[in-house]
């Protein structure tokens, strides 16, 4: 069944600016959907519209079969984890967890039971009587999640919950969030600008740009079959190489080089390939790259070079001997991508 249905949601501010320009997304039961995109792409606004913190200008938000557009956040059966945790600083952890339940009129023995359960689940039982200021960042993060868990929501909303943590802790918490969400088997939306977080956490990724959906798909789909040049350059590190070319009669021409391309399309195209999916064959044929700078990263190395006027980056296993001067690239058919140079859409 579908937990959340967002239908053609539009957010327009009083000054006429549109932050979300008609987005439709479904979140299935128990699914973790990640909204990813650069700053200002409307991902947080969309999440806040689901939470009820932003009004929906147009469109529908349907949670468990009920349109919630005009419901207060508290009546929507959602729980949100904020970027800065938003814990009540003057309350103990226990009271922080219990506050929402208390406001709902839950009997106090049930509150106690739920708080203890959440505390045990998140391994914060020993901190229950401390104040948030006495906790570390990771512990505060857990408390914030605990506050969401005790409410048994239909859906969890995470608004960049890890961006205040250091890199090591971030990796650890990322894994814990995923495990927790699997264990609770509750649908979740996770907003981030970090494509690594998006790739590792998501069941499905929604790539947003400029208030519109660029692509919805599993991490593998988004990575290996990006729908637009935006997605191609946003997902993956280093990003996909994009070079303008010309397609005619099944041949792709890039500068002086041409290679066979199984496509009926003709005319100017943008040719894309992932840095880690190019082969350097010793042969004289292939796409010629003038080598510039080489970065050693330990397990592999990044080779920055130029094809004509265009910068390209190629990743190579560090065990192979580093190339020198000039290299020839060849590609497997499924690793090449063609985009319309005007619309950026995949052809």
């Amino acid at each position: 069944m579908t937990t959340l249905r967002i239908r053609n949601a539009i957010k327009q501010y009083p000054n006429g600016a549109q932050a979300v320009k008609g987005v439709s997304v479904d979140v299935e039961d128990g699914e973790l959907v990640v909204f990813v995109g650069p700053s200002g792409c409307g991902k947080s606004t969309l999440l806040r519209m689901v939470a009820g913190l932003e009004e929906v200008t147009d469109g529908e938000i349907e949670l468990n079969g009920r349109v919630v557009n005009n419901l207060e956040p508290a009546d929507r059966n959602i729980a949100m984890v904020f970027q800065n945790y938003a814990l009540y600083p003057h309350m103990s952890v226990r009271k922080n967890l219990a506050y929402g339940l208390k406001n709902r009129g839950t009997p106090s023995d049930e509150i106690d039971r739920k708080v203890e359960e959440a505390g045990a689940l998140l391994q914060i039982s020993e901190f229950l009587d401390r104040k948030p200021s006495q906790l570390s960042g990771g512990q505060r993060q857990r408390v914030a999640m605990g506050r969401a868990i005790v409410r048994n929501p239909a859906i969890f909303l995470f608004d960049e919950p890890l961006s205040n943590l250091d890199a090591k802790l971030r990796n650890q918490m990322r894994l814990e969030i995923k495990k927790l969400q699997r264990r609770l088997d509750t649908a979740a939306i996770y907003v981030t600008h970090d494509q690594v977080e998006a790739m590792t956490l998501a069941d499905r990724i929604v790539v947003l740009n400029n208030g519109m959906v660029e692509q919805i798909g599993t991490p593998t789909e988004v990575y290996s079959r990006p729908a637009t040049t935006f997605v191609a350059s946003f997902i993956g590190a280093p990003p996909m190489n994009l070079i303008p070319g010309e397609l005619s009669k099944g041949q792709l021409h890039i500068g002086a080089h041409s290679m066979p391309m199984n496509s009926a399309h003709a005319g100017p195209v943008t040719f894309g390939f992932r840095p880690e999916r190019a082969h350097m064959n010793g042969a004289a044929s292939g796409l010629a790259v003038e080598i510039g700078v080489i970065e050693e990263l330990g397990a592999h190395r990044l080779i920055h070079g130029r094809v004509g006027d265009h910068e390209v980056t190629v990743a190579q296993d560090a065990e192979l001997p580093p190339p020198d001067g000039r290299m020839m690239l060849a590609f497997n058919e499924q690793d090449t991508h063609l985009f319309d140079p005007d619309t950026g859409a995949r052809v």
Binding site: L53, F82, A86, N103
Partner: peptide, 18 residues
């Protein structure tokens, strides 16, 4: 006072007086 506190309280079902 961070705005998120107010939003968290709203999600927790606290009205303006609360």
């Amino acid at each position: 006072v961070p705005n998120e506190l107010m939003e968290a309280a709203r999600i927790d079902g606290a009205g303006p007086v609360q």
